[in-house]
């Protein structure tokens, strides 16, 4: 079987197209590369959707936490504490059993017990909490002078927030947020190891790598392949966020624009 044939069979195996049966013996390098790459579809799916949706919730929560009204502040603080203070692994398990309970007691919501929706909800809430803390920190370090200047121009309320405070917050938060995005993509590999079942062996990259490692008893091929794909993904994320960073700082002269450097002191 040629490598191209394998690619045709397995490139979309993780989302249910192509050959149903996974290879059982004589594992070729091509098969491993294709299947693990196919699994990356799920990692990207979870990461991108959780980031996009989580971004909006994170901004809302950060604003709530910065609010002086305790009815807004307290829930936001608790939300952040719960999702940042406990392991994602436990959150996945807990959510899975919670959704199962929900399914049994109400008869509906069965879609929440499958990984594509249930795990996405957990990742969405999780990244929202981590990003909210980042945005909150940035919100508090918006220079006073900028806000005073806005006041002097007669800006108030929404227009002051939208035109002055929020852009500066994003600018300040962006390096840390990039870091969060990278670690969120890494966290997507936990999904299929934590309660959420892989229906018909349709799962993410690490699941297939683990499958190969179990079958061949040789970890030195599949895991480096995963590593390779994730390094590519990380570079892609840094590239995209770098573009956004350039856009955010487009008003600054070239040589004093803050550069995105992938040497974060603070990880998730």
């Amino acid at each position: 079987m040629s490598c191209w044939q394998t690619v045709q069979d397995y490139a979309f195996r993780s989302i249910g197209y192509g050959e149903r049966l996974l290879p059982r013996d004589d594992f070729t390098l091509c098969q491993q590369f294709t299947l693990i790459g196919s699994g990356m579809i799920w990692n990207i799916y979870f990461g991108v959707l959780a980031l996009l949706t989580g971004f909006f919730l994170a901004n809302a929560i950060a604003l709530m936490k910065a609010s002086s009204n305790p009815w807004l502040r307290r829930p936001a603080e608790w939300f952040i504490l719960i999702f940042r203070g406990s392991p994602l692994f436990i959150q996945f398990f807990l959510a899975y059993f919670l959704f199962q309970e929900l399914k049994q007691s109400t008869g509906s919501f069965s879609w929440l017990t499958s990984a594509w929706a249930g795990a996405l909800v957990v990742l969405f809430l999780n990244t929202a909490a981590y990003s909210a803390e980042i945005f909150y920190g940035a919100l508090r370090s918006v220079p006073k002078g900028e806000v005073e200047a806005a006041d002097a121009y007669g800006m108030t309320g929404w227009s002051r927030f939208r035109r002055i405070i929020w852009p500066t917050t994003l600018r300040l938060a962006w390096p840390a947020y990039t870091n969060e995005a990278i670690f969120l993509f890494h966290a997507t590999t936990l999904v299929f190891f934590s309660g959420f079942p892989a229906f018909q062996q349709k799962a993410d990259a690490l699941y297939y790598a683990n499958y190969f490692a179990d079958k061949t008893f040789n970890p030195f091929i599949p895991y480096p392949i995963v590593a390779f794909y994730f390094v590519l993904l990380t570079l892609g994320v840094i590239g995209l966020f770098g573009l956004a960073n350039r856009y955010l700082n487009r008003h600054l002269p070239q040589d004093i624009r803050p550069k995105l450097r992938y040497r974060p002191q603070i990880i998730r």
């Binding site: 890494h186 966290a187 590999t189 690490l206 790598a209 683990n210 490692a213 590593a227 994730f230």
Partner: peptide
């Protein structure tokens, strides 16, 4: 650059 869980699974066998 690589997810830590991939490393965990790798190193245990390796």
């Amino acid at each position: 650059g690589v997810p830590d869980i991939a490393f965990f699974l790798f190193f245990v066998i390796a």
